[in-house]
Design a protein around this nucleic acid. Structure first.
Lengths: 190, 190
DNA sequence: GCATTCGCCTAATACTTTTAGGCAAACGCC
DNA sequence: GGCGTTTGCCTAAAAGTATTAGGCGAATGC
């Protein structure tokens, strides 16, 4: 029997594909083993445990997402940049629902700190340079944008906006218009 | 041996408590059985299966949340109502993290349609009567508010706003200020 | 008090997760 | 090209969860 050449990276990629097919919740060490046609126990030389696999998938998704975001922001500013960044999240979630769910996986604090998660916050800050916000309002705005992007995408994917009129694409466009208007006209603190 | 008097309702409540203690993901038919000191198989006369248990917990959470929202909105309007409704979600998530996670459980379309989920949308609509929005902008605004509430709460709970300055309470207040300003000054469509 | 119902039990099967220890393929070296 | 070492995948086994089938006794109703 020739060997299969497993590695944490290959297992993670397979896990990510599996997540997109059946959902992140259903990702299982056993199923990944099955896909490589090896015994489950064999994966445990490459992965600490099931949680480790999920963490790695989450980190992969965060990186991919951050890479896409960086590319989308390059050379854009203002509303153009806002729209581009927002669409990165929405499109990624549509193309890779399992990975997107993985990106929400609760990471241990140290893992989170060294993840691409921080790049995301930095990029949203970069976006805001096109608007006229100073601290602490800039941080408030970073958090608001993160909330809207994540909240919208997650409700839309979850069927929260049941396919009723008006269609979600229209809402998405108008929400981005509204956010742009809000950022250009951020209310002063009282 | 005297009987324990199980029922779907009691099992659901126990499951909800379990969710708040260990997380919705970790809710297991076996653990619920353990809490009633009965055999796992005994639960299957009251529940179709594990998925059924989770669905029931989700429906319970949605109802509780809708009840709280209805109470919070009673007698309030405008920004007062906006703040009250927003705090219902945030407070519920803090008091009952497992139930809040359950409320995001993907329901089958028919279950979703007959759930309290629709009440939530109606209440957000009611809130918007205090602002001057007509269709389809009202629907866009309903979706925006849902996204912000859910997105903010979920990121905050997930540690997304790593305990850095400024604190999340301040951001929350300013975000609600910003949303109020936005709703009072909704940008016309282009 | 007795018959019926129905609720919880035992038993059994099938997965998934995880650890321990074995054997042979692959690699590095002469 | 043979030889030893490493190491990668295997078998074995234990523990936990999900689920179904069928039994027996407690609760209920007359």
């Amino acid at each position: 029997m020739t060997r299969v050449r497993l590695s944490p990276e290959r297992l993670t990629r397979a896990g990510a594909e599996l997540a997109d097919e059946v959902g992140f919740e259903q990702v299982t060490v056993s199923e990944v083993a099955r896909r490589f046609d090896v015994r489950v126990a064999s994966l445990y030389s490459h992965l600490k445990n099931s949680h480790d696999l999920k963490t790695r998938i989450a980190l992969l998704a965060l990186e991919e997402l951050a890479d896409r975001a960086a590319e989308a922001l390059a050379g854009r500013a203002g509303k153009d940049a806002l729209t581009a960044l927002a669409n990165v999240y929405r499109d990624y979630a549509r193309e890779h629902p399992g990975r997107y769910a993985a990106a929400q996986f609760r990471l241990a604090p140290e893992a989170a700190a060294s993840s691409a998660g921080v790049r995301h916050a930095q990029m949203t800050r970069a976006l805001l340079r096109g608007y006229d916000l100073t601290e602490p309002d800039q941080t408030h705005a970073v958090r608001l944008l993160g909330s809207v992007f994540h909240g919208y995408v997650s409700l839309e994917m979850g069927g929260g906006f049941s396919h009723s009129a008006p269609d979600t694409q229209e809402t998405w466009t108008r929400v981005l218009d509204a956010l742009d208007a809000l950022l250009r006209n951020w209310p002063p603190s009282p």
